[in-house]
Structures are given as C-alpha cells and as structure tokens.
Design a protein around this nucleic acid. Structure first.
Length: 304
DNA sequence: GTCCAGGAACTCA
DNA sequence: TGAGTTCATGGA
C-alpha cells in the first residue's frame, strides 16, 4: 500500500483488495467499526463477508458508496473516497471530530447505578454515534417502529432500490441512494406499501409532505439546543412519537443528550435502575449512555 | 398458532 | 391523564 502523508493523522492510499480503490486512513483511538455499524443506529451498512481486513463494512450514505475497514482499534480505513470528501462528509459522519474518550470517562464517573454503566461502557466502548443525514434518519426510524432490525434493513433497501438514485460502484454492482423527500412524496402511499412498509407507508408520506412543504425545518432543529423544542417539531409528523424523535435527534442531528427509550432500554432500566434513572446525571451525553446500555442489553443480556 | 420487534395513534373511561 | 387495543409483516 503506497502511503502519502497529508494532514494531521490522516493519510491516503489504496485499498488492499484487488480493486485497489483510493482510500483515506485515519489514526484514531479505540474505534470499533464492528460495533458502530452493527449496533442498530444505521441500517444501510453490511459486513463484507471475506474481507482482506480484520473487519470491513460496506454501504451507502450521502449518496456515496464506501467501505469502512480496520485491523486494529486505533486506525480506520475509509475506502472508495478521497481527502476532500473525508473532510466534507466522513469525518463528521464517522464521529472522528469528537473526543469520545472524554465522554466515556464522563459517563463511567457517574456512580448512580449498580455498576452497569461502567460494565456497559467497557463492553460497548468503541461505539461511535454516527452523524447520519436527518431526512434518511427520520424515515428509517419511522420504519423502525414495532419492527425488528433485519426487517427494517430490508425495507429501507427496497425503498432505495425503487425510488433512490442509482450509484455506479467500482465493483460493478449498482447501489441506490436513499430517496429524497420529493421522490417519496411523488411515489405515493400505494408504492410505499409495495415496499412492505405496512401501516407506516402513510407516515412516510406525511413526513415527505411536511418536508417538501417546508412545514418541518431541519435547519432550525439543527440550530436549536433545547431537546423538547426539537422533538416537538419532529412530532408534528404522524408516526413520530417520543422514541422516534429521540432517535432522529441522536443519530441524525448529533444531539448526544437525546435518550430514546425502546423495549431494550426499558428492560435495562427495569433490571438495573429500579429506583429510576436521573438523566441529568448523564447530561450532556445521555444518548451515548443509552447506546451503551442498548448494546449491552441487546447483545449481552438478551431478552429473558 | 403465538409471540415479538429500536412505537404510535386511537378509543374509552 | 392513563390503560388497553389496533396497526402490517416476517422470523423464531
């Protein structure tokens, strides 16, 4: 691999596989690509089966096809991209602009629980909260309601194939960007039903209508600090309740204090926080704690 | 056949 | 204001 030093802790090169794609190599700290892409926050990335790296995921975001690979925790390789897109898109998307170590220490230092937070943080530690596109995140979590992760992924692929812009990929496979609000509005409820969204089709349609008509303004949500105000804006959309709104704020707007409560978090709260959980103790990173607890409960403790 | 899934709208008291 | 029901769908 030819490596050209460019800027601080960022290098360019070519990928190790036979396609030798341009890639950006980033020095980081305790980053888990595996946990980050497999923890249920994003639905369009999948593990590359026989990768030439220790771990590798591929998928579509921001209308681009990338692979994210790593061999050890302190370096990640972003394949099929360049420095310009890294600075413009992937740095922020992958959470490489945030000091996660400091956040983790902050959360572990809170001792209001039975030690579960520290345990969860140690196990889920390398997870990064991705900064995904708000519109796609909104639709994804509308689809997520009363649904399971494998099926959510299938539906989102189906919608993208049917309504999204095709992306020519270097491996010869055509992939599809997540459709715009306008494309979903034009498609109509019937077409959306055909992608197995079920009763959520009308919710997606409502979201598209409000977005196209500028009745919900993503920029103002971006600029607003107060989470209740942000959630209230999103909840004007049919099918968006407290949980979906919190997920969109956390995963789509990078509002790290948003705390989505789903069935898994409810289990965790019941098991480990019988006296209740004071979210202000975790502030302003309650959402990161939530992701640790979600990961720990779903992947370690299980349903029971 | 029954239960469940990163829930929310709706109904009825 | 709060508890119970209904909503599509597919996998376990």
């Amino acid at each position: 691999m030819s490596i050209n030093y460019t800027v601080d802790k960022v290098y360019t090169g070519v990928s190790r596989d036979r396609l030798q794609l341009p890639c950006v190599i980033v020095e980081t700290e305790n980053y888990s690509v595996d946990k980050t892409f497999d923890c249920g926050q994003c639905f369009r990335f999948n593990k590359v089966p026989s990768s030439s790296y220790g771990i590798e995921y591929e998928g579509v975001a921001f209308g681009r096809y990338i692979r994210v690979a790593q061999d050890h925790p302190n370096e990640i390789i972003i394949i099929n991209t360049d420095l310009s897109d890294y600075e413009k898109i992937w740095k922020k998307y992958l959470g490489l602009d945030i000091d996660w170590g400091a956040i983790e220490r902050h959360l572990i230092s809170r001792r209001e629980d039975d030690g579960i937070m520290e345990k969860a943080a140690r196990l889920a530690g390398g997870i990064r909260i991705l900064r995904q596109e708000p519109w796609e995140t909104l639709c994804s979590f509308i689809i997520s309601q009363n649904n399971n992760i494998p099926r959510i992924k299938k539906i989102i692929e189906s919608i993208s194939e049917r309504l999204g812009t095709p992306i020519d990929c270097p491996d010869g496979i055509t992939r599809y960007a997540f459709p715009t609000d306008r494309a979903i509005l034009m498609a109509g409820i019937e077409t959306l039903m055909a992608t197995n969204t079920g009763y959520r089709a009308k919710y997606l349609y409502d979201a598209a209508r409000l977005s196209v008509d500028r009745k919900i303004d993503f920029l103002s949500i971006e600029k607003t600090d107060d989470l209740d105000t942000c959630a209230a804006i999103l909840r004007q959309i049919k099918g968006v309740g407290p949980k979906v709104a919190a997920c969109v704020l956390l995963f789509g707007f990078g509002k790290l204090d948003a705390f989505p409560v789903d069935v898994w978090i409810r289990r965790s709260l019941k098991r480990h926080f019988s006296g209740g959980l004071d979210l202000s103790v975790l502030s302003p990173y309650a959402g990161v704690a939530q992701q640790y607890l979600f990961y720990y409960t779903r992947y370690i403790e299980g349903r029971d």
